[in-house]
Design a protein around this nucleic acid. Structure first.
Length: 311
DNA sequence: CCCCAGGTCGTCA
DNA sequence: TGACGACATGGG
């Protein structure tokens, strides 16, 4: 698909970069949609509201302005081109979401209300290792607790990469596999990850030993990547789908968690279930992939946002 | 006390 | 294969 051309203004004097008129983008909804767990809201930096976002050992202050036509200006507090490009890639800003949404609606008109509700939610491009660890923690857990555990992991065992004295905010990097593999099970357990301690350790051991090669996984097709990730204990079908969708951007993945299951049972699958059919999560995953095709993961994220943002 | 959260594992048939 | 209980932990 053709890439969107970005309108980027770099202001060296103010140390600010503005990416102008981004279509279908909501910074806060996107970060808050359960794909990444590492961002910190700030009440007062340079007299405006914003946040520190983190990925791949980079922490940047940013905020958004909404234009009259609903497009968004993303303001980054940096002028470093490498960092700017990191965030463009992270938020997939070159993807033409208007076109993708039009195609999805053309195939299936009922998707329009899902899109309107989740307006601006994008699939982001997260770091593979971080995604593996956070989504192992996510199993049978909730967003608040996942975020707390990831934050504990970073602040206890990661290097501090940002210190904001004025707002009393510190940001730490996610420790690497080697560092985590040296921790005891008790130390990992103390991150409030419960029974997932041994899974985190297994993932790091396999990465350190070379049994799992993250660079190889990045070059695999969607199906091979899924199976390779599932060699890690604690990574089943759903966790693997989240990792390949968010960290590898395999958009055909359709992760089925408790929310997606509830939604599909009450909507897409309702009539057949009334006729006495039953579906496992794997059935629902295959149904979603078939029905929504190459952008199933994007549809899934709209559904997830809708289900979790109510109340 | 119960049930639930971006599920997976081991076991038993 | 398919079903089912166990698993940590905090919130409602």
């Amino acid at each position: 698909m053709k890439e969107v051309k970005l309108n980027i203004k770099i202001d060296k004097e103010k140390n600010i970069t503005t990416i102008k008129n981004i279509k279908f983008f909501d910074l806060y909804k996107t970060l808050d949609s359960g794909q990444t767990f590492r961002y910190t809201y700030v009440d007062n930096v340079d007299k405006f509201k914003g946040l520190y976002a983190y990925t791949k050992n980079i922490c940047t202050y940013m905020y958004e302005e909404i234009n009259k036509d609903k497009s968004v200006n993303l303001i980054l507090k940096t002028t470093d081109e490498k960092i700017i490009n990191t965030w463009i890639e992270f938020f997939n800003l070159k993807m033409d979401y208007e076109k993708i949404n039009d195609e999805l609606i053309k195939e299936n008109k009922s998707i329009k209300k899902l899109i309107d509700n989740a307006y601006g939610v994008r699939i982001i491009h997260t770091d593979l290792f971080e995604s593996i660890i956070t989504f192992i923690i996510s199993a049978n857990n909730n967003m608040k607790r996942i975020k707390a555990s990831v934050e504990l992991l970073a602040s206890r065992y990661g290097k501090r990469i940002m210190h904001d004295k004025e707002n009393n905010i510190d940001v730490y990097e996610i420790p690497n596999a080697k560092t985590i593999s040296k921790l005891s099970l008790d130390e990992i357990r103390n991150l409030k990850v419960g029974f997932r301690d041994k899974y985190i350790k297994d993932a790091c051991n396999k990465i350190v030993s070379g049994e799992i090669d993250l660079d190889e996984i990045k070059n695999m097709n969607a199906n091979d990547a899924k199976l390779e990730l599932m060699k890690i204990k604690g990574v089943g079908s759903k966790v693997s789908d989240c990792i390949r969708l968010f960290a590898l951007n395999k958009f055909e993945a359709f992760p089925v968690d408790t929310w997606i299951e509830k939604y599909m049972i009450n909507n897409d699958l309702k009539t057949s279930i009334n006729k006495g059919k039953s579906y496992t999560r794997i059935d629902i995953e295959n149904y979603g992939m078939k029905k929504y095709g190459e952008y199933a993961g994007i549809v899934q994220q709209y559904i997830f946002y809708g289900m979790t943002s109510e109340k």
